[in-house]
Design a protein around this nucleic acid. Sequence first.
DNA 1: GCCGTTTTCGGCCCGACTGTTTTCAGTCG
Length: 579
Amino acid sequence: MKNSEVTEVLNEISALLQLLNENKFKIKAYAVAAQKVTDLPEDIAEVAKGGEKELLKLDGIGKGIADKIMEYLNTGRVGYIDELTNKVPAGLLEILKIPGMGPKRTKLVYDKLGIQSVDELYNALKNKKFDGFPGFKEKMVSNILQGIELRKDAGKRLLLSDALELAEQVVKVLSNIDAVLKVEYAGSLRRRKETIGDIDILCSVEQGRSKDVVDVFTALPVVKSVIATGDTKVSVLTSNNVQMDLRMVGLDSFGAALQYFTGSKEHNVVLREYAVKNGFTLNEYGLFKAGNKSVKLAAKNEDDVYKALGMDYISPVLRENRSEIISALTHKLPVLVEPGDIKGDFHVHSVYSDGKNSVMDIALEAVKLGYKWVVITDHSKSLRIANGLLVKDIERKLKEIDKTNEKIGDKIRVFSGTEVDILSDGTLDYPDDVLKQFEFVIAAIHTGFQQSEEQITTRILGAMGNKYVNSISHPTGRLLGQRLAYNVDMEKLMVSAKSTGTWLELNANPYRLDINDIFCMRAKELGVRVTIGSDAHSLEQLEYLGLGLSTAQRGWLEVNDVVNTMTAAELKDSFKSKK
DNA sequence: GCCGTTTTCGGCCCGACTGTTTTCAGTCG
């Protein structure tokens, strides 16, 4: 998969062009193309095998950029980058990442003092080499120094689950203030991105009382320092170095502001471009007639803004500029799978491997969550670190599941399952005559991560060929912020899932969210169905399923794309269908 | 450099905060 490399190359060109003060639309064109490559579910190298004409079909990629992508894929280099770095050293790109150091200041320190690295910049600032330079007065110098010192933590993103917890707490505190009329979190958190860079809180406050809110916000225990304070915006840094922005708007423009601050940036750019083309102007205060800001057409509610633009309401989870705007205009948005559609959980560990709870405890908790069924999927024998279930103990587990079903009656159906290891040599950790004792089998890779793409893909394809394997667990094996995906040809894997009638898991553990939203979209295109599993090892972790559901929504999945929407009776039949 | 429900040329989203600017540039989201 070359997508991340190509994205990096395009972003590098975009940044170098910034330093050279090039045409800002050219800069944007490279950045937009980089984003498009990131969002591509297929390997760009595979697309490029069809020739440059295939690349040109991609939105945002024209002749110039397609040439550079082809050159990179063919030679591993791009001559244009060499050309640019002859004019301005590549070391400056690191400086550009420091808060406060934009292209102008970065270029200035290079031109005047020959500074090419963050360390050189740091020393020069400490030694007051900048006296008299425009834009480098005392306050700015101290801000930049702080930015450099925080650099190690910068770029670290919060897991969706952690960001949700933090934001919900802050919203709760703010909503208890008398002067607060309305408060909601926005940004990538509201869009349920898998990781969150900063937290945006939107707040509507009684006239003249914003100080009450600012005082509480900046004094929150989690706040380490205040970055900026204005009339309508306050930015702080939390103790784990995450930026949190509070924006205050009038109640009558809350909807427009919520739309604006929910983003994504790319979605908003396209939306505002569309507005302009149709004689409007859109900002955080409302939708106006172009050139006449006294005619406000929509602002109070978010869906009014979309409606006034002639579109269906677009759910926040879809706002990534992945053709949702054209779909909203043509009334072709998906009817997303919703929490109420979910009837059960496909992936739960019990005391029969490394889970904390008994089968009965899990069943009762699942009832509380409103489920109609739950699958207990313990690890298989080889995964000793996770107390994998030995063959001799399987019968005991199956009997306990039977007994639980008898006791609990028709409140819920517990299915017997296993998360069987796909061993390094490609065989499954249980033989077929053991696997067939379970009602549901997910197969997973937990070892041999370093193998080649061909080896790992072959292992998974082999597992999918087994008639007892219903689904593939966490197909890419990534752990957010900790471990990259192993080398696997996802396109081959998904095509094979379709041909073998195997489902793919969307593992809802906050570190995994695997498969991600982009692969969900591709699975849907290919007609591959998705099983969402919490991978819970304790009762509290059953709630992770919601994170998986929002990821599925971000992947445009509808009821029929998600197997969790089936009833226990329907499932029982379809478990067998592969066999 | 890209793109076309008016366009193959001439456009390309919008506003807040900081610093030191007395009307704006740079940076950020």
